[in-house]
């Protein structure tokens, strides 16, 4: 309770209330996250259960009864007779899950490695930063393609669907950790020579404790900003990978897979198969980006 009232009274919250863009972005993000979470209860259909679909419902126009089955779908149906509205909700779940997990993975991995590299220095630092170089050498899409390829090689064919999502998370996460590592390492290099850390060292605190208690909190600001922007990037990256044919499986599509499928219908007039998933992705990525932007400015003491 106290934490909440503290937060409500805080400078950050005040600045948040004063920024209409941030408030709108927050509301949109929250709405999207909530509808993804409660998709099974909101969606009129479970598009991930192929046996329940009727192919003849395919390409129904939004709000117009299907000529064969007479069923009506608010946002129309896609080429498999899936209700676009339900598919978006379920796809949003996959996209958000992949995005959040990938960023969490990258953040934890990158921060830990960056902290160790910056604090320990010497050979450890060299090795970690050289690994980061290798990582940077492969552009994100290539890393993801590579991991996808290897995962496909080592998992038996029958499990590929189950692992596909986890491979995506691993692939996007692995291509993203270097940013966190660099920022945290940079901040650690600055902090470690400051008097308070030196003092902590002198009174005999363990390196781990110093890192966690004193250095990490000081890097939280920039890490949070990177994390927010990475979330938007990760969701887009998943879509891009889907275009290259290594995204979420078509029977359990993410927003990116839906857009990849939908772009095939751009010229044919079935605009709804592309438009609604694209607008959803745009709304999600845009509001997360705007939140990240606002957060960056708000946490930057020099800009107050």
């Amino acid at each position: 309770m106290e934490a909440v009232s503290n937060f409500l009274a805080s400078d950050l919250f005040y600045r948040f209330r004063k920024s209409p863009v941030a408030v709108i972005a927050f509301i949109v993000t929250a709405l999207l996250v909530l509808s993804a979470l409660f998709a099974p209860w909101i969606a009129p259909q479970n598009p991930f259960d192929p046996g329940s679909l009727n192919l003849m419902n395919g390409f129904s126009q939004p709000g117009v009864p299907n000529q064969f089955t007479g069923e009506t779908f608010m946002l129309g149906t896609d080429d498999q007779g899936r209700d676009v509205f339900s598919t978006i909700l379920y796809g949003l779940r996959i996209s958000l899950f992949v995005g959040f997990s990938a960023v969490m993975f990258a953040m934890v991995l990158g921060s830990v490695l960056g902290l160790i590299a910056g604090y320990t220095g010497g050979r450890t630092d060299t090795i970690i930063m050289r690994i980061a170089d290798i990582q940077l050498t492969f552009p994100a899409i290539l890393v993801a393609l590579l991991i996808f390829g290897i995962a496909k090689g080592i998992t038996p064919p029958s499990y590929r669907n189950e692992v596909a999502i986890w491979v995506l998370i691993l692939a996007i996460g692995l291509s993203d950790w270097v940013q966190f590592a660099r920022v945290v390492r940079g901040a650690t290099l600055v902090e470690r020579n400051k008097e308070y850390v030196q003092a902590a060292k002198l009174i005999g605190r363990k390196p781990m404790a110093i890192m966690l208690k004193h250095i990490l909190p000081n890097t939280l600001g920039p890490v949070l900003v990177i994390a927010t922007i990475s979330l938007a990037l990760a969701i887009i990256a998943e879509a891009t990978l889907s275009f290259l044919g290594v995204g979420a499986p078509p029977t359990q599509p993410s927003l990116g897979t839906l857009i990849r499928i939908g772009q095939g219908f751009l010229f044919s007039g079935e605009y709804w198969i592309l438009l609604y998933p694209a607008v959803t992705l745009l709304a999600l990525a845009l509001s997360v980006n705007l939140l990240g932007d606002w957060l960056r400015d708000a946490l930057n003491p020099k800009l107050k």
């Binding site: 259960d49 046996g51 498999q80 064919p157 590929r160 669907n161 029977t251």
Partner: peptide, 14 residues
Amino acid sequence: VGMMGKIGITANLV
């Protein structure tokens, strides 16, 4: 996959 689903065969598509 959908049609197989209707007769109880769950086909996992790769």
